[in-house]
Amino acid sequence: MNVFRLIGDMSHLAAIIILLIKIWRSRSCSGISGKSQLLFTAVFTCRYLDLFTNFVSIYNTTMKIFFLASSYATIYLIFMKFKATYNRNHDTFRFELLIVVSVILALLINHEFSATEILWTFSIYLEAVAILPQLFMITKTGEAESITSHYLFALGSYRGLYILNWIYRYYVEGHLDWIAVLSGIVQTGLYCDFFYLYITRVMKGKNLTLPA
């Protein structure tokens, strides 16, 4: 554990809590892509199957259980409890394509051709692109509530901080996992436009509206 990894995890945790608070307080999931949330739930489910086979630490286990439980709770809120507020007609990204491409890539490029390893690799590839339906939705509507943009900023920062963690681990511990690193770079890269808008608009107290 290093400081980049810890702040990254805390940023990830904050993102999930911000999203749950937004939905719960406003009794609405408007502006949130149910498809991105379904993809994140698939990511956690495939990656954290090792909860049953591999113990790392209390911290690791607690975080995994929280991420799994909160993602299923989010899905429940969007598709059941507050489904009347879900903007289905704006959430039109073809997310099946992301799943198919991630499955194929995981089968072709992995560290070891075993079920658990391929599921882990699939979760890494899918996580890299899972935010696309959400970003697509914002592009389509041209705006996002400020709490939704705080959510996205925390979620995007998390993988960026993991990149710093991987650089640190490479130099200090000699660890290098190209699958995680390259996917993390792609994942963080997808947020670049959003980061720019967040820093230039939301941080100055303006709403996140896309330039026409």
């Binding site: 995890d9 690791n60 560290h111």
Partner: peptide, 10 residues
């Protein structure tokens, strides 16, 4: 070494 790295991260 690789296995350790990814299994201890979230």
């Amino acid at each position: 070494v690789m296995r350790y790295m990814k299994k201890d991260e979230l």
